[in-house]
Amino acid sequence: MTKNDLIIETILMAGKIMIENGADMARVDDTLTRIARNAGIDNPKIFETTTGILMSIPEQSSAQVEPIQKRTIDLEKVSLVNQNSRAFQDGQISLEEFRNNLVKLNISTPFFSFWLQLIAAVVVSVTLMIMYGGSWHDMIATAFAGGFGYSCYYLINNRLNIRFVSEFLASFLIGVIAVLFVRLQWGTQIGMITIGGVMPLVPGVPITNAVRDVFAGHFLSGMARAMEALLSACAIGMGIAFVFRFL
């Protein structure tokens, strides 16, 4: 493998990991250009969107393409790629080591365990319900709604890998639990319980990134992210609307 091939492979891999795990385009662009400059290419041509990266070196006639099919959220990987890029810039690691580190971190970055995430989801639901002015009597109902909703979302996302169906079913479940608890007199306000329960599912990363991408001039990526956020929000809304219509 020639040096240029190795550079292109490393850059494409870094870009793929960053975009797959929820980085914004300005950050990706900055990091990839920096890696190329530090590897000795003065004028790298990199074009990245949410669904793929194109890269070429001006002296070479051919360009390389890297499609990006799945998009999840794991901000620790983004931060690790960034750290490695900094280390490469400072000359602490060579290009080969950089590439090996990328392969390693893509497979073996630890995620918080499911139980910790479940507890986090319950905490998010309950605290936000209180912050929005809900009553303390609804705490248990919100905890149940948030916990069951998030587990449903997590399991469908991980086992079946269908994005928008998981949000729809999870919010439907949250609505059902809220109605059930209020009917059984264990809660008081359906609205507050539902809002709290839905909060862990809110597409915060796509919304923020869409705004930042559009302002940074990456209109294609911004629109793609906004579409993703809109679809998620619609799926959540549909699930709750179903509950109101038929229960």
């Binding site: 959220i73 794991d74 931060s79 905490v123 998010v124 912050m131």
Partner: peptide
């Protein structure tokens, strides 16, 4: 104080969900 504690916990909770370091 309740609002501050709640917003702190909510932010950290969402941070765990999106796996920040």
């Amino acid at each position: 104080i309740i609002q501050i504690i709640c917003s702190y916990l909510a932010t950290i909770g969402f941070g765990i969900i999106v796996n920040i370091p």
